[in-house]
Design a protein around this nucleic acid. Structure first.
Lengths: 334, 334
DNA sequence: TCGAAGACCCGAAGCGCTTCGACTGCCCTG
DNA sequence: CAGGGCAGTCGAAGCGCTTCGGGTCTTCGA
């Protein structure tokens, strides 16, 4: 491996000149710059990240703590991660992957100066990692919205707003009784904030509009779905719901069949609005009317926010991504 | 941040002594070792990874190139990644995440000495990244089995064997006509080796056993599944299949309903063997008889193999993980 | 015509660690 | 009792980079 010294010798300049050519932090004449760049190409030089990190106190690596387990929506997580990695590259940063349960991981990678900043996904309402993160004195961004961010930046989809938007859409179509099928009970119990907020938004919007509402948590399995649907359709003897808001990506592929087998046609008998990533909403035979979760945008925003805090000293911010509903084939007026 | 110098001063020893306490590469008296460890605790010292990388030529980071896109089986990928990260930690390594389409990524992270070794997932038969990897002169392990590993280590599940095992099981149950529902056409077209090998093993085993076989590629959507099933059941006028081998995790949640709506009960009318991760096989209302894909074991093996090559100079190896079938409720004798 | 202001480049001092060679006692052997 | 060997420690030389503080040489306005 060629070093900067080799490059300097090859180009007939000093070490520091090469460094300044690379960093652009001082003016260099066109001529020497070209000479240095030639030498770099010729020797196939690339800087040693360790040395650079040592001297500059910057590693060009972001830490990303992601939930690598089955009980979250895997494909959404994947989209986030992909967005984060891709965006990070545009800032010339790489991504170090930490798992949720690696408790000491945050502490370790920062105290060893392995990362310049941290991103944390799958935030719970009172996430125990937040105080840890807060005292690490590294730029950090939470992907999710806890009760108390403790001075950390946050970015997330406005799940409450998404539910409200979905409800508003259905109300405009004259639905007066709306069911909500949400995340699994487990997500609620650990207070994953997206689950809580989507429910809350739904309830509030229904109340505000004066329409009847029923909520069910549901796992992404056929029997769980069956049970939830039966409950919503019976609705304890009250009028059955005429429409559904579904915030559970894993369920969507199962939903069409499940309703069909109950003699319910979409949208003639029942309208459905999904809250899901766009590709999931579009994957169905009959694409879902949906409020799409822009995982990619959120991931990108998260990286932008750490980098802002790293480069300039932009203040901490809390950013909510505005929901947008696209009407497709699964909702109709009543 | 405390440095090693601070520790040395605090403990009243020299810099190098602290280093040797940490690395254990020279004998140190019990007494000074304790003193140093006390100082480390007291100052809350942890070594600067950049400095360490610079001096020791080791970064303690492994690069993992993973397919972060929708057209692979996301949950399997996730399991691999989780296994890799977790196992890496037991070797005191962290994991840097590279995306498949970051072409220069491999080159970059090695030439900048960011990683000690590389893992690459989702290998295609004649993967263009293999020659690149091969000339990087870093320990590397392919998770997958290409036509020509070019001197790189490989580890993968024995998908051909998995199909054979599934077929053997069905043949023992007196099935004489077996259908195969596999990965999407797209996977076949880019020659993802797991798809190819599973198909090949299936065909061979059927031929060897003298039973009729039909193969279909299939995407994980309801309509695609419907089409595939209709084709297998009609079977061009020949006898309909009495059993299925399904190598497509995304399809499993849809399969039960799809068969039921065609009046086919599992296993009375049709037996089904899944080739899928165990948790997927178990997630169904009626757990699938399955050859399980031990994503976790494979991920772990991959890390072990890089670390072996890194620490000792163990030779390159190609390791295939042996398939195991567990009979559950979806197969029965005919 | 002269000093100030740039433009451009170099040298050297670190950054925090690993590791090699050397030094000091001490114990053990012959 | 001399000498070798070993356990235990230290000093110093890097590892490859960034950055600060000068230099030198032009250029330009007064």
């Amino acid at each position: 491996m060629a070093t900067m010294n080799d490059v300097a010798r090859e180009a007939g300049v000093s070490l520091s000149t090469v460094s300044y050519v690379l960093s652009g932090k001082r003016t260099i004449s066109e001529e020497t710059r070209l000479a240095v760049q030639d030498a770099i190409r010729k020797l196939n030089y690339s800087p040693h990240s360790g040395a650079r990190a040592l001297a500059s106190n910057r590693s060009n690596v972001l830490g990303l703590m992601a939930p690598l387990r089955a009980d979250v929506n895997v494909s959404v997580v994947m989209q986030f991660v992909a967005a984060v990695v891709t965006t990070a590259r545009t800032y010339n940063q790489d991504v170090l992957l930490l798992t949720q349960d690696d408790a000491g991981g945050l502490e370790r990678v920062t105290s060893q100066s392995m990362v310049d900043g941290l991103l944390m996904m799958d935030i719970e309402a009172r996430d125990p990692r937040i105080p840890l993160l807060a005292k690490l004195r590294k730029p950090a961004v939470l992907i999710g919205l806890p009760d108390d961010p403790q001075g950390l930046s946050c970015v997330d989809f406005d799940f409450a707003g998404a539910s409200r938007t979905a409800v508003r859409h259905l109300v405009e179509l004259n639905h007066r009784s709306i069911g909500f099928i949400g995340s699994p009970q487990a997500s609620l119990e650990r207070h994953a904030t997206y689950a809580d907020r989507a429910r809350k938004g739904f309830s509030e919007a229904c109340e505000a509009a004066g329409v009847a509402s029923v909520l069910r948590a549901c796992e992404a399995t056929v029997p769980a779905l069956a049970e939830a649907l039966d409950a919503l359709i019976n609705n304890d003897g009250r009028t059955p719901v005429t429409s559904l808001v579904v915030h559970n990506e894993g369920l969507l592929p199962l939903l069409h069949e499940a309703l069909a087998s109950r003699g319910l046609r979409i949208p003639e008998d029942i309208s459905v609005v999904a809250i899901a990533p766009e590709d999931v909403a579009l994957a169905a035979a009959r694409p879902w009317t949906a409020v799409s979760i822009p995982a990619h945008d959120i991931g990108r925003a998260a990286v932008e926010m750490v980098m802002d805090r790293l480069n300039s000293d932009k203040p901490v911010e809390v950013r909510l991504i505005v929901p947008k509903l696209v009407q497709r084939e699964t909702t109709s007026a009543r």
